[in-house]
């Protein structure tokens, strides 16, 4: 490890340790905001691990999240909770692998549409199963898990995402993805299996979304298809990641924090217009800051450096 990496590692550990103390403040509103921010951090960062290098826009987050939530709802009486979270991660990974195998050979546009349709498809299937076999619309997840435990679980998951992102960037897989992002024809002629590389990252992001759904299930407490599979979640994740920037591991975080706080205000004031506002936010980001806030800042820094070195 270089001196710089060691310094970064120490900073990250200190930051996580401080964040882990948040519940000790016994401030209900702050804790609930903390849970939201931690949740979106895991979702947006793992989303960007896949979408940053491949340029594929996935709207499947809600599908994997919902599957994770339902794993808990269905298994809460029979299996210990930690096992259910692991199982939810596995279910998210398997679902992502199936979707990836079917769609990652398609061009980007088809991929977006398919992933958007996926959440709806899974939701319809779950609704149909519930109507025909269980006879109830929703399911209760009643546990003794408190908000602060949920917060700590999500924080641990966030640490795991950052660790995996860091490992991938330093691996053959990470190098392959950078080449694929540049030129897929060259990648193929160098011996890279593009489809397998993309699939690996998509599976990782699916596993994380599934685990997040499982961790959030006790907070939702009553789970029905329209709550678990809300495509608004998929759009929010995309917007936050793009707002921050997907070219750095910590880029999405820069988008998650302001957007989550802002969204609290907006959703409270205009509860019926959230979809419209999400759409507008999406367009503004794509047109005005396609490389995210982090990309903007970095290019401004580079320009300033050039000016200084020319002066």
């Amino acid at each position: 490890m270089t001196a710089r990496e060691t310094r970064t590692l120490i900073l990250v550990v200190v930051a996580f340790a401080l964040l882990a103390c948040l519940p000790l403040l016994r401030h209900g509103y702050l804790l609930s905001l903390g849970v939201d921010i931690a949740m979106y951090t895991v979702l947006a960062t793992s989303w960007a691990l896949f979408s940053g290098p491949t340029h594929y826009i996935s709207l499947a987050t809600a599908a994997f999240y919902g599957i994770g939530a339902y794993v808990v709802a269905a298994g809460i009486g029979t299996l210990p909770y930690p096992a259910l979270v692991a199982l939810a991660g596995l279910a998210g990974a398997v679902a992502a692998a199936l979707v990836g195998l079917a769609t990652l050979r398609l061009s980007g546009v088809y991929f977006v549409i398919f992933t958007l349709g996926l959440a709806e498809l899974v939701r319809q299937i779950v609704t149909w199963v519930q109507n025909n076999f269980t006879g109830s619309r929703g399911m209760y997840v009643l546990t003794s898990i408190t908000e602060r435990m949920i917060y700590w679980e999500l924080l641990a998951l966030a640490a795991a995402v950052f660790f995996i992102g860091w490992r991938v960037a330093r691996s053959r897989l990470g190098f392959a993805l950078r080449i694929i992002g540049n030129d897929e024809t060259v990648a193929a002629h160098l011996g890279i299996n593009s489809a397998a590389c993309k699939l690996a990252l998509f599976v990782i992001s699916g596993a994380f979304a599934g685990m997040v759904g499982a961790i959030m299930a006790p907070r939702l407490s009553y789970i029905e298809p329209s709550i678990a599979f809300t495509s608004e979640l998929s759009f929010q994740v995309v917007i936050m990641a793009l707002l921050g920037g997907v070219h750095r591991l910590w880029g999405p975080l820069v988008g998650v924090i302001p957007f989550t706080i802002l969204w609290e205000v907006i959703a409270a004031r205009f509860p019926t217009q959230t979809v419209l506002l999400l759409g507008i936010a999406f367009l503004l980001i794509v047109y005005l800051i396609p490389n995210g806030v982090v990309g903007r800042i970095e290019s401004a820094l580079r320009a300033a450096q050039r000016r200084v070195s020319h002066a």
Binding site: F175, A176, I179, N182, D183, V186, H189, L190, G191, I192
Partner: peptide, 27 residues
């Protein structure tokens, strides 16, 4: 291994990384 009639450089990589790409994934 091949080169292309219209050169294909990997632009977001450094010069050395472009060449390493061949060493890491090829034969």
């Amino acid at each position: 291994a091949r080169t292309f009639q219209l050169v294909r450089i990997l632009h977001s990589l450094t010069v050395l990384e472009n060449v390493m790409a061949g060493a890491v994934f090829g034969h």
